[in-house]
Design a protein around this nucleic acid. Structure first.
Lengths: 118, 118
DNA sequence: TAAAGAATGCAATGCAGTTGCATGCAAACA
DNA sequence: TGTTTGCATGCAACTGCATTGCATTCTTTA
């Protein structure tokens, strides 16, 4: 089952939600898919993206992607096709913070129209 | 009631969730507070922040804050005190996007430790 | 004062995420 | 080879937050 999910993820251009997975594997149980994603996330295979749509998306980590602050990329949510894409080439620039603020995580979500829909 | 909520918001340093409001106004109905926030948001008085904690936070808009892409500030969520702050002085820098991607909204959430908790 | 419109409160719904428990499979071990 | 142990799967149920419908109350205005 996990192999099937991994295979499915490899074929995706966009990040997938639990619902997407469920639709693709209608024979499998929602819970199993959920736990599969959680396991993948723990092992560092995928990272989760809260794109503000209410449902968390998951995408495969790139080679050497530690999903750590120093290796963060931008996520783009298209309002037309409702897909969320990783933009590994768009790095998050350094942000000036007030004194004594320590960053552990950064999440940058852009919303608009993607290349396919414009 | 709306005046009370507005007054409460004015006193806050951090963004408030619906639960925060409910705790502060335990005499008022959750739904009323919810609709009050929605109304404020529609009118441009507050902006909503999805900080990834599962509950949406609201904060008063600054003077002249159009909450538009060109006027976006950073939000900071402290993992210790669980508060979410607006950092109006930390502007979101220009991000290089792939060809034909059009941005309409940007949301940048940083997580870590705030000044009070460090 | 009467009527119209808006605000409030109660109840109920929907959805996403999550957990507990029982079952089944498969590898490790005696 | 038979047993045991651990993990994966599936079902059911629960939680929390957001949201809507409907009835009631308040306010405004003619």
């Amino acid at each position: 089952m996990r192999l099937l999910v991994l295979d499915f993820l490899l074929k995706q251009q966009a990040a997938v939600s639990l619902n997407d997975l469920e639709a693709a594997f209608h024979r499998a149980d929602r819970i199993t898919l959920y736990r599969t994603l959680k396991t993948f996330e723990e092992k560092g295979l995928v990272h989760s993206i809260a794109d503000g749509t209410g449902s968390v998306k998951y995408a495969l980590c790139e080679e050497g992607c530690a999903c750590a602050p120093e290796d963060l990329h931008v996520h783009f949510h298209c309002n037309i096709c409702n897909e969320t894409y990783c933009l590994p080439k768009s790095r998050i620039p350094e942000i000036a913070l007030p004194e004594n603020f320590k960053t552990e995580e950064i999440s940058l979500i852009m919303k608009g129209t993607c290349a396919s829909c414009s």
